[in-house]
Amino acid sequence: MFFVGDNLVFNYQEGVHNVLKVNGTGFKQCAAPAGTVPLTSGNDVINLSTPGRKWYICGAPNHCAVGGQKLAITVMPSSFAPGASPVSVISVTAPSPSPTAGCS
């Protein structure tokens, strides 16, 4: 479960993947609105500061639509968090790209 105050960390190979925050439609269509700025560090930390649904996709060609590199979460209010535990860090690591066969 995710709670307000948690940090979501995306770990991936810089230059191969990126992270785009999208809405539900963008998530379903694997498409970000024009002007969406990608996160590209390879170690992106997103503080989950508000409750509700959140959607993220990889914007590299075909990584979302074909490779399934997308994430949908629901962030619960901090009042739902069990006890007074420290802030959680949830890490998402992208798989290494598979080798592609050359054409003859």
Score class of each variant (00 low, 15 high):
Met1Phe: 04
Phe2Gln: 10
Phe3Met: 09
Gly5Asn: 05
Asp6Pro: 05
Asn7Gln: 06
Val9Leu: 13
Phe10Ser: 02
Asn11Lys: 14
Tyr12Ala: 08
Gln13Cys: 08
Gln13Met: 13
Glu14His: 02
Glu14Val: 02
Glu14Asp: 11
Lys21Val: 07
Val22Pro: 05
Val22Gln: 12
Asn23Leu: 05
Gly24Asp: 15
Gly26Glu: 05
Gly26Asp: 12
Gly26Ile: 00
Phe27Ala: 03
Gln29Pro: 00
Gln29Ala: 14
Ala31Leu: 14
Ala34Val: 11
Ala34Thr: 13
Thr36Gly: 01
Val37Asn: 00
Leu39Lys: 08
Leu39His: 13
Thr40Ile: 07
Ser41Arg: 12
Asn43Ile: 06
Asn43Lys: 15
Asn43Thr: 09
Ile46His: 09
Asn47Tyr: 02
Leu48Tyr: 13
Leu48His: 11
Pro51Leu: 01
Arg53Val: 01
Lys54Met: 08
Lys54Trp: 09
Trp55Ile: 06
Gly59Phe: 11
Asn62Arg: 14
His63Phe: 13
Ala65Gln: 10
Gly67Tyr: 12
Gly68Cys: 11
Gly68Ser: 10
Thr74Arg: 08
Met76Lys: 13
Pro77Val: 06
Pro77Leu: 06
Ser78Val: 15
Ser78Asn: 14
Ala81Val: 13
Ala81Cys: 13
Ala84Asn: 15
Ser88Thr: 02
Val89Thr: 14
Ile90Leu: 03
Val92Trp: 07
Thr93Tyr: 11
Thr93Asp: 07
Ser96Leu: 12
Ser96Pro: 04
Pro97Gly: 11
Thr100Met: 09
Gly102Ala: 05
Cys103Glu: 13
